[in-house]
Structure formats: C-alpha cells, structure tokens
Design a protein around this nucleic acid. Sequence first.
DNA 1: CGCATTTTTGATACACGTCAATCTCCGTGG
DNA 2: CCACGGAGATTGACGTGTATCAAAAATGCG
Lengths: 198, 198
Amino acid sequence: MRLFSLVDRNKPSLARQSRDYLPSQAIYRAGADGLAWRVKSGVVRLDAAGKSGEASFASLAIAGDIVGCETMLFGVYTFTASALTPCELTPWPEGKSATAGDSLLASLALAQQRAADLVALRGGQASDRVLGLIRLLADGAGRVILPTRQDIADITDLRIETISRIIKGLERASILLPLKMQGIHATRGYSLHFAHAA
Amino acid sequence: MRLFSLVDRNKPSLARQSRDYLPSQAIYRAGADGLAWRVKSGVVRLDAAGKSGEASFASLAIAGDIVGCETMLFGVYTFTASALTPCELTPWPEGKSATAGDSLLASLALAQQRAADLVALRGGQASDRVLGLIRLLADGAGRVILPTRQDIADITDLRIETISRIIKGLERASILLPLKMQGIHATRGYSLHFAHAA
DNA sequence: CGCATTTTTGATACACGTCAATCTCCGTGG
DNA sequence: CCACGGAGATTGACGTGTATCAAAAATGCG
C-alpha cells in the first residue's frame, strides 16, 4: 500500500524519474494512489483484486504500453502491477505537450491491439498459446526473457505442469534454447529459433 | 470493403450521424477506411483477419467503448466489426472539444478495463465464463439480449454444443428466463435472476 | 553445503471437444 | 393455411487434451 517515494536515492531528485524493477517485484497496488507509467522495457503483469485478497490475472503490459492511467481519473489504481521480467517504467504523460491528441490516441489504439493479443493467448491449443506468448515477448533478434512457469500459466490459463511440459518440448525440438547453454548468464533467458517454429 | 455513404436516407444529411445495425450485420471491415465510432448500445464483435481470409475473434465492444480509432492513425481499420445484438454507433470524436484530454483518457482507461473483462471470460470453468459474459451484457434491470450460441462460443473459446448445454442448464435452473415465456417478443432476449446466480 | 523454491516427470481422472442426429424456429411460396 | 427448406439450437455417445495428484530432480541462494 505504501507510496513509492518520489525521491530516488541514487540520482539526486528531479521528481519524475524512470524506475527499474526486478522479476516478482511489486510496482503498485490496486487501491493505492500514484502516477501513471509507460513501460519502456520488460513485461508487467496486472492483477484484479478479488473479494478475498487473492489476485487474479487481468492483463499484460509490454514495451510502449501505458499502465495505471486510471489514477488520473479515479485517484487510485484499479489493478495491481508487478514485474515479470526485469523492466523499466517512466512516468506518464511524458514532458510537455504530453496529454495531447496523437500520443493519447496512439496509446488507445495500442491498448486495443494488446487486448486482441491477450485474447489470442487464451484460446486454442495449449502449445500454440505458449508459443504465442513467447513470440509476443521476443525481441527482434529472437531473444526472450520468459516469466516464471507459474506466470506463464496464469497468462495463458493453463497449469504450471502443462507449461513445463510444453517448454521442455520446445527445448528438445531446438525451437527454444536456454541462453545458459551459450554461456550467457540470464535466468530464464532463451533464444527462439523461428526457422523451426511454424 | 465498401465505405458507408455519409448521407443517411432518412434524416436529411448532417453528415456525421449515428447508425443502427442488426445482429450479424457487418459494421466495417479490416483494411477499409472510415471513421472511428463510439458504441452507444448493443454489442460489437471485432475480428482479426487471418492469413487466409478467416476471421478470428479478437475483441468485444459494448456501450461506451470506442471502436476503429486506429483509422485516425493508420488510415485503415485493423479489425473487422460486426453487430452481435441490435446496436447503435455514433461517429467519434463527438462534437467540439472532443479529442481533448479527459475524454480520451477515459476511453483509454475503459479500454484497459474491457481488456481485463475479456481475459476473465476466457479463463476458468466453462459455466463461469458463460455466466460472466451474460453478466457483462446484462443491463441494470437484469435484461439481456444474448448473441448467438456460435458467437458466445467464439468469445469464450468454448464450443457451440457446450454453450448450448450450459444455457439450457441455466434456463432449467431458472437463472435465465427467455423473455418469450413472458409474452415479450425478443429473440434471444432473457431476464437474468441474480438471486440464484452466485 | 543445505534448505527453499521452482521445475520436471509420471500416472490417472475428468471437463470439454467431437461427431452425428434430431428438433425448433421462421420466413417463403404454393 | 400449410408444406418446404435452411439456419440455429439441442441432445446423446464417445474421445481426448489438460488438469490433478504425487514424487523426484534441478536450481538458486544465504
């Protein structure tokens, strides 16, 4: 529930600053007040608060998406946000002519596109959903940092055991290679080999 | 692909006018150009165009939602829109100070809320998904006009037979009553009895 | 090194999918 | 007014993709 101090301990003040989060770190909680943010990199998970405190997956935000903009209307966050991969957020709206037309319009269009992506991740065969998520999260070079199996399961509405079986399968089929194998130390980092994947 | 004429045959001109659609009617098609719209009433289905022409369910829009705003950025629609129940749309942005801050911001927040609703309709037990959709579509008085079984199936990622069994079950449990029984003629119109429902 | 957490694997169960017949509307035309 | 036809809805019997449950096996970390 606490509000993040607007004063960063490293960089001396300047109030509206970008922030970094590590996987599983809370970004903000439903009901609290705070700023709206734009996701610069990484993957953010949004959860709706159920009656009895339990959080249920509600949405996903990736680079470019705006999160928490409802605070600007209601004063409090509707969802709880947490980091699924290392990620960086900056306060929104950015600088000067920010709230102006085109920027906001682009954000609206992006939000609708993201909603369609999410819908696709929750329908069809289990392996297609997981592959769909991996593709959504992969960068141009085919590198991905995956969320934990549990988070992938929540996003795709599958079970953790099912996710594990599918990802192991992709590894065995050489579609997904752990970066660790290539000497790079990045937990849950993989390289995706499109060639094989449909 | 055709563009709807901006001149309505009934009401003499005034260019930017609201439009009515009947279930299963196409509103606009992906790739075509046209205006952005706000849904005043009814339920609109958005489909992403697959490689080979087939349409796959992408999103849902209900009263208050904006659809097709991407034309204002890209010049063409990203999705294909069609009516699932009788519905009315008006051109957007509305009138004067339209594109201004708050209205757009509210639309963005609403879009994100809708995305979360959609996600909830595609996870968990089959009967909960269907009930969730019915609740989403019901008006304050517990009246609903449901889409066809096929459309409900597409939205919830279930099969038409499963939907049929679940809805018949709700009818038998007196949670959902066909309005027809009450002498009102409205195909697929029901009244929802919250009392029994969870 | 040793513990807690996450991931993997196997065996079995069940919710929903699939296939195939009806059945119910409704509009159409004789 | 009724036979006809087509689209949507319902129902039953059976199959299967994931969920479940239960144990190992990895992995990360102090």
